[in-house]
Structures are given as C-alpha cells and as structure tokens.
Simulated assay, not measured.
Amino acid sequence: MSERYRSIVDVYVLLRRNGKILLMERANTGYADGQLCPPSGHLEQGESVIDGAIREAAEEVGITLTSEQLSCAHVVHHRNSDGQGRIGFFFAAARWRGEPTNREPHKCAGLSWADPDDLPRNTVGYTAAAVAQIQAGHGFSIHGWDGIDGSGNADDSG
C-alpha cells in the first residue's frame, strides 16, 4: 500500500495598488535570498488558508485584511528542484487597512511595487510562474513537474 501524499501549503498575498503588486526582497533566510516574492509563508497547523494569508500579511507587512477583502486568484501545485511538492494558494487584495511596511527587516531587505506583467528578473521562479498564470486568467497551474508546462497541460515540446 502506498503512503498517502502530504504537501506543504504556501499562502501568498498579492496586494494590488495602481496596477502593481507588492514584492518583498528575501534576505537572511537561506532560501531565495536576494529574490523577490509577495508576502507569503507556510500554513500553520489548524489554520485555514484564508487565516494564514491574513496572518502572513500582518506579520510581514503590517496590514490588516479581512476574509472579505481576499479573493483566491490562483492555486499552483509546485515541485522544487529537490522533488518536494507543495501547494500554493495565491490571494489578491485591492483593499486593506494600514500602509505596507517592512515588519521583518531581519528576513526582508525591502519592499517594492512591481508591474505583474513585467516582474523583475530576480522574482522567485515559482512566484513569477504563478503571477504569469494569474495575469493570463488561469485559476490553476502545475509548476516544476516533468512533462508539464506552467498551465498544467502536457508539454509536448520535448
């Protein structure tokens, strides 16, 4: 009998303002330092994906969100280069309370607003692929699995 599949769940918050999204520069974490990603983190035990997104936004950029202000923009099944699978939930918000500030300077070198159609080259690959899918209007994608392109379709290109 095969073992039941288990996955890490990531939550991302795409704060949208004036056609741009907020990105954070990762620093001193040991993963993707110097690269950009939206406020995000891992789901904690007993937490819903909505509660996780609200918590991460508060912890990382000091804003207050409600569940009504979040909409699910995308879900991605990602596999990293070590073969570890994870599920990422990307939530979008155009309204929130407070002004985004860097609340974790020990893990974040700074904040910047970026055009989601022209993300900086140093955006985390998993994040950039999901944002591209969101901009194309796709609600689901697969990333990092052999033989599958970012849209979740079989890649016949070889």
Results as ranks from 00 to 15, higher is better:
134 I>V: 09
132 A>W: 05
51 D>Q: 11
130 A>T: 08
46 G>V: 06
15 L>D: 02
19 G>Q: 09
126 Y>I: 03
98 G>Y: 12
141 S>H: 07
110 G>S: 04
46 G>W: 06
133 Q>Y: 02
157 S>N: 04
119 L>Y: 03
67 S>M: 07
84 Q>P: 00
67 S>Q: 12
125 G>Y: 15
46 G>D: 05
19 G>S: 08
114 A>N: 01
154 A>L: 05
20 K>R: 07
115 D>I: 02
73 A>S: 14
50 I>L: 12
83 G>N: 03
21 I>V: 01
53 A>D: 12
12 Y>C: 06
109 A>V: 02
36 L>E: 02
34 G>P: 01
134 I>N: 07
150 G>E: 13
132 A>D: 15
11 V>P: 01
16 R>P: 02
51 D>T: 01
14 L>Q: 06
91 F>N: 03
23 L>D: 04
20 K>C: 01
124 V>M: 09
95 R>E: 14
1 M>A: 09
139 G>N: 04
86 R>F: 12
52 G>L: 05
14 L>E: 07
6 R>S: 12
55 R>G: 00
65 L>R: 03
147 G>V: 00
120 P>H: 01
102 N>H: 11
23 L>E: 02
63 I>L: 08
8 I>C: 15
41 G>K: 11
97 R>S: 15
26 R>A: 04
12 Y>Q: 13
125 G>W: 05
134 I>G: 03
73 A>L: 15
144 G>V: 01
111 L>I: 04
91 F>W: 11
66 T>S: 14
158 G>I: 12
23 L>V: 03
8 I>F: 14
155 D>F: 08
88 G>D: 14
138 H>S: 13
13 V>A: 12
118 D>H: 12
102 N>V: 06
98 G>K: 06
25 E>H: 00
114 A>T: 00
16 R>I: 09
155 D>H: 05
8 I>E: 11
38 P>H: 03
66 T>R: 10
90 F>G: 03
10 D>Y: 13
8 I>T: 07
84 Q>S: 11
56 E>I: 09
54 I>A: 06
89 F>M: 14
124 V>S: 03
135 Q>C: 14
33 D>P: 01
143 H>T: 05
133 Q>P: 03
16 R>Q: 13
85 G>R: 08
74 H>T: 01
26 R>S: 10
51 D>Y: 06
42 H>A: 11
96 W>M: 15
65 L>S: 03
20 K>E: 07
73 A>F: 10
140 F>E: 12
64 T>I: 09
70 L>C: 06
155 D>N: 06
99 E>P: 00
123 T>Y: 08
157 S>T: 07
103 R>G: 01
29 T>D: 10
4 R>D: 11
61 V>C: 09
120 P>R: 00
92 A>H: 10
135 Q>S: 09
7 S>T: 09
87 I>E: 14
99 E>S: 09
1 M>V: 04
24 M>E: 08
55 R>I: 02
150 G>A: 07
41 G>T: 06
144 G>K: 04
144 G>L: 02
75 V>C: 06
150 G>H: 13
140 F>I: 00
10 D>P: 02
25 E>V: 03
21 I>K: 04
21 I>R: 04
49 V>C: 11
